[in-house]
């Protein structure tokens, strides 16, 4: 499982394909076949990382006007975004200057909801051109794999 580094900048994973609908965003990780839905404020949080952000700073900025439970919901989401590789470390890219993100308003904030769907992951898992374990070969994934469900 990918751990969030508190001292690093993150940005949206450019291997994720996303489409926005009125009330929902749908995203696919075409590397592993896992797909996602985002509702509430989830898509706005994810899109905040379109420019590199240090997660703790971004969370503080986005949630400055929110209650503690709502702030924690955003923090938890950011951790899951990193775990699911929806955001990844921004190698060599400096974080965006603080103060550029739009704060969530307490009166209109909707809890972030991230739906994770793994039912199609087997379609990709049977693909032979995946990372393989050095000793066992295909189809055994390396122990330090990507945490695919």
């Amino acid at each position: 499982m990918t751990q969030l580094r508190t001292d690093a900048a993150y940005h949206v994973n450019n291997r994720i394909v996303a489409e926005n609908f009125d009330d929902e965003m749908v995203l696919i990780d075409v590397d592993n076949g896992i797909y996602f839905s985002m509702q509430g404020s989830a898509a706005a949080v994810w899109r905040a990382f379109e420019t590199p952000q240090v997660p703790a700073s971004a969370c503080a900025e986005l949630t400055a006007e929110l209650t503690e439970p709502d702030r924690l919901s955003v923090a938890r989401l950011i951790h899951e975004l990193a775990e699911r590789k929806l955001i990844v470390e921004a190698e060599a890219a400096p974080p965006a200057p603080a103060g550029r993100l739009s704060r969530f308003a307490a009166t209109s904030f909707a809890l972030p909801v991230l739906g994770v769907f793994t039912d199609l992951a087997d379609l990709i898992a049977i693909d032979p051109v995946h990372e393989v374990d050095d000793q066992a070969g295909w189809p055994v994934r390396p122990a330090s794999g990507d945490g695919q469900a």
Partner: peptide
């Protein structure tokens, strides 16, 4: 069904297959 839910049912499978 909302467009987003329809997209969830159609797009990932259609793309990944």
């Amino acid at each position: 069904l909302s467009p987003g839910q329809a997209a969830l049912a159609l797009a990932p499978s259609a793309v990944l297959q």
